[in-house]
Design a protein around this nucleic acid. Structure first.
Length: 272
DNA sequence: ACCCAGGAAATTC
DNA sequence: GAATTTCATGGG
């Protein structure tokens, strides 16, 4: 077992970061810590007094967790900037300001957000769990790595029946095959022109604008991405007087997460 | 039973 | 080409 400790981590909230619909692989423990799988590591993460502690299997990997939790970015400063843009964003930033945009693996982000379409978060988690149990490498008794593109590309649509993702099965296979054949190089999308990167992802059957934006934000750390789902469309209309997603600037993705979390926790704002 | 879900493809107008 | 319907499944 390895332990990694990060001090003076602020602003930060495990709950807001790991249970806000950007990753589907973390579960909360009774003591407030979270346990999940990143790459081939099982980790239990806790946060107290501005100290983030990661307990993982294998050798302590400081760099991995620093990147995963985006600890080198100045969220305090970004929060301040965003707060000046709009009064409701100031409110949302103050409410959900502990969120970090995770650096998830691009392929995992691609597949999980394909699964997310026309679906609800609790069911998405179940499907992703079954996907890993069935096709991911076993790490310990109860934890499995996310399946590789090669493994998923080797499957037929029917092989995915046990995960019960319905019409999305063929989308998952198509995505895995394109990545495995290197028709799509996910890493190259980190620096590509945003519209081109979007277009590239949308070659995959089952990937439209919204899923592409999520992959770019959560898998490739394109912080200007502003995914528009049903919640966000509602929020922009009701709370932001019809503002458009591209009006939030280079850290729009962070603003989007603040607004998404704030809106989900304040459903009463949308009872018209 | 019903409605909806971090949408996108397929069909119809 | 734009608007509507369909797609599988199950949480609430």
């Amino acid at each position: 077992m390895g332990t990694v400790i990060f001090k003076d981590v602020y602003p930060f909230s495990l709950e807001q970061t790991l249970d806000c619909g950007q990753s589907f692989r973390w579960s909360k423990n009774d003591d407030g810590s979270f346990t999940g799988v990143v790459k081939n590591k099982v980790a239990t993460v806790s946060y107290e007094n501005s100290t983030l502690t990661v307990l993982q299997n294998g050798k302590a990997d400081e760099k991995l967790w620093r990147e995963y939790f985006d600890l080198d970015l100045d969220y305090g400063g970004i929060k301040e900037k965003l707060s000046k843009m709009h009064p409701v964003l100031e409110e949302a930033s103050s409410y959900a300001g502990g969120i970090r945009i995770l650096n998830q693996e691009p392929f995992e982000a691609l597949i999980t957000f394909i699964i997310s379409q026309n679906n609800n978060i609790s069911r998405i988690k179940g499907i992703v769990e079954r996907l890993c149990e069935n096709f991911g490498e076993k790490i310990d008794d109860t934890h499995f790595a996310f399946p590789t593109p090669e493994r998923l590309a080797s499957l037929s649509v029917d092989d995915l029946a046990p995960i019960r993702a319905g019409f999305r099965h063929r989308y998952i296979i198509d995505a895995a095959k394109r990545v495995q054949r290197k028709e799509i190089d996910l890493e190259s999308l980190r620096i590509k022109d945003y519209a081109d990167a979007q277009k590239e992802l949308m070659k995959i059957t089952g990937v439209g604008v919204k899923v592409a934006d999520c992959v770019l934000l959560y898998g490739l750390h394109r912080l200007e991405s502003f995914p528009l789902d049903v919640w966000m469309k509602r929020a922009l209309k009701v709370l932001f007087d019809g503002m458009k997603g591209d009006e939030f600037g280079q850290f729009g993705g962070i603003a989007q997460q603040y607004i998404f979390h704030y809106s989900r926790m304040h459903k009463e704002l949308f009872n018209d």
